[in-house]
């Protein structure tokens, strides 16, 4: 019943692509209210919308809610309360996976949000369907856009490299600063400092451990004590036994699946 109760908060309205659209999706929305505040989703002005079809975009939603007032911004998410992604800069554009989404629509004014919640009908997203690139138009555009002049590609690369170099440099400087003695006289050891240290990665760790192990083994005498010889013999027998067990298991398996009926 809990779920049922919750959905009463949501308002359900049809979202049409154009005026002529038949059987549109029904979107659900309510005022966005969570304890944590964030500047992107100011309380009182933000509308929380779920079940947006893959082709709904910012412009379309702005148009749809036009009657309520001016939309300040629209943020699309795949999941509600998605943790803010750290904006890592990627060189390649991310591949798009169209899917149903949710959105946070921020209005200019508080009153507009109230108005939006009182809407009984949404305007269609577009006047005519030609305004939005979909289907063939979209794919042709995508394809043509993917072709870059060498000059432009070069510019992109150079720009990215420049910013990367700048980032790397600032990181290095930061490390260098750490190298300095702090107030309490501590010095952080980094890769680039004067104090030589090894790279901290699992590979290096494994290598060190392996070396230790090897050293240990070298010191050990293997065929010295009687119990060791006995043990190694035992191990051999165990291996043979396992093999035999394996053999038996195989037969059982074949028996199970074929039951040895040739015809």
């Amino acid at each position: 019943m809990k779920a049922n109760k919750r959905n009463h908060d949501f308002k359900a309205l049809e979202l049409k692509l154009t005026e002529e659209s038949v059987s549109p999706h029904i979107i659900y929305f309510k005022e966005h209210s969570v304890r944590e505040q964030s500047p992107e989703k100011p309380s009182g002005r933000t509308l929380f919308v779920v079940n947006l079809p893959p082709y709904a975009d910012e412009k379309g939603l702005t148009n749809a809610f036009h009657e309520a007032g001016t939309v300040h911004s629209v943020r699309f998410c795949n999941k509600p309360n998605e943790t803010e992604e750290k904006p890592t800069k990627t060189f390649l554009p991310e591949t798009l996976h169209p899917r149903f989404r949710i959105a946070y629509i921020v209005f200019k004014k508080v009153a507009q949000l109230d108005k939006a919640l009182k809407l009984t009908k949404l305007k269609p997203m577009y006047e005519t369907s030609n305004e939005v690139k979909l289907g063939m138009d979209k794919w042709i555009q995508e394809h043509n856009n993917s072709i870059l002049l060498p000059k432009n590609l070069k510019e992109n690369i150079e720009e990215f490299m420049k910013s990367y170099d700048a980032d790397a440099k600032s990181a290095e400087e930061k490390e260098k600063q750490l190298e300095q003695e702090d107030d309490e006289g501590w010095v952080t050891v980094t890769k680039r400092g004067k104090v030589q240290s090894f790279a901290r990665s699992d590979k290096v760790e494994n290598k060190i451990m392996a070396k230790e192990e090897k050293n240990k083994k070298r010191k050990e005498l293997k065929n010295f004590y009687t119990f060791q010889i006995r043990e190694s013999k035992m191990k051999h027998i165990v291996a043979l036994r396992q093999k035999f067990e394996e053999d038996k298991r195989k037969i059982a398996q074949i028996k199970q699946s074929r039951r040895f009926k040739p015809f």
């Binding site: 049922n4 959905n7 359900a12 692509l17 659209s21 038949v22 059987s23 549109p24 999706h25 029904i26 079940n51 079809p53 893959p54 082709y55 169209p98 149903f100 369907s129 979909l134 289907g135 063939m136 138009d137």
Partner: peptide, 29 residues
């Protein structure tokens, strides 16, 4: 993709197949 349906006075939800089929048309324009 859900749409509300009235069932014995209760609001339940169901996948809106018609809307999905419409989506297929829209995406493959």
């Amino acid at each position: 993709g859900l749409m509300p349906v009235e069932m014995d006075g209760e609001t339940k939800y169901k996948v809106n197949k018609q809307a999905l089929l419409q989506d297929f048309r829209i995406l493959g324009r």
